[in-house]
Computed example of a mutant assay.
Amino acid sequence: MHPLQHPNFRLHVGWRTIKTAVTAMLVAMVYCLLDRNPAFACIGVIFGMGADKQESIQNGGNRLWGTMIGGLLSIAVFWLYLQWFPQGGHTVYLAMLLGGAIVVLILLCQYFWPGGVQPGGVVLCIVLFSTPIDTYVSYALNRIFDTGIGVIAAFAVNYFLPRARVVALRSRVEGVFKK
């Protein structure tokens, strides 16, 4: 049986879905007005929006701490690589440095925030293999900043608009219209 035909399958747009969509849209609009690419800030929103404040702290923390650790580590590794190959272009050597960097990333995440390994590894690989030599520092710092903005936006929305508050407000509004 196809999953969509299963009797327990239902499409549901809940409060978390709405909060995620609206927050990502608003963050993207602000970024566009500032002429900045909103991609990583919106990813921060999506990762950071949990069903409640605690889940937001866990998921957003994973993304934020991982991005910070991976971003800062990528700056150090790329700088080290450029000491040997100032013009770049020796990706095999960069790949070898990546192996050691992943060990360091995992150790740092074990110490600071265990859930940060995956997002930290993503940032590490993107900076090392997809960033021009002249912009690797600013690129990594911008990813950390943008991710932080997105995660903070998700935290703020979950703090000010928790499910219990919205359900209570909805009940009051429905009560007014029933009278």
Rank of each mutant, 00 (worst) to 15 (best):
L107F: 04
D146M: 03
L128G: 09
F112L: 15
I126R: 08
G115H: 07
I102G: 03
A164Y: 04
R143Y: 03
P119Y: 08
F129V: 01
T135V: 15
F145H: 09
V127H: 00
I133M: 13
V127Q: 01
L128F: 03
F129W: 04
P132C: 09
L105W: 00
N142Q: 13
V157G: 05
L107G: 05
V122A: 08
N142S: 10
S138Y: 10
I133Y: 06
S138E: 15
I149Q: 04
Q118P: 03
Y111R: 14
V103F: 09
I102M: 09
T131Y: 03
I149V: 15
P119C: 13
F145N: 07
V117W: 11
F155C: 09
P162M: 07
L141A: 05
L141H: 04
A153S: 11
S130M: 15
C109S: 05
L107N: 09
V117F: 10
R143L: 15
Y136V: 08
Y136S: 12
V103L: 12
A164R: 14
F112Q: 07
V166S: 13
V122W: 05
A153G: 05
A101K: 05
I152D: 06
F145Q: 08
G115C: 10
L105M: 02
P132L: 14
V122M: 09
V151R: 10
V151I: 08
G148R: 13
P119D: 13
S130D: 06
L128Y: 08
G116F: 00
Y136G: 11
L169Q: 13
G115M: 11
A164W: 04
L169E: 12
G148Q: 12
G120F: 00
V167G: 08
A168E: 12
R165G: 03
V137A: 09
V127G: 02
C125Q: 04
A164S: 15
I126S: 09
L128N: 11
T131H: 07
V104G: 01
G120V: 06
A168V: 00
T131N: 11
I126N: 09
V104Q: 02
N158G: 03
V122C: 04
Q118K: 13
G116Y: 02
Q110E: 06
V157F: 02
T135D: 12
I152H: 06
N158M: 03
W113Q: 13
F155E: 07
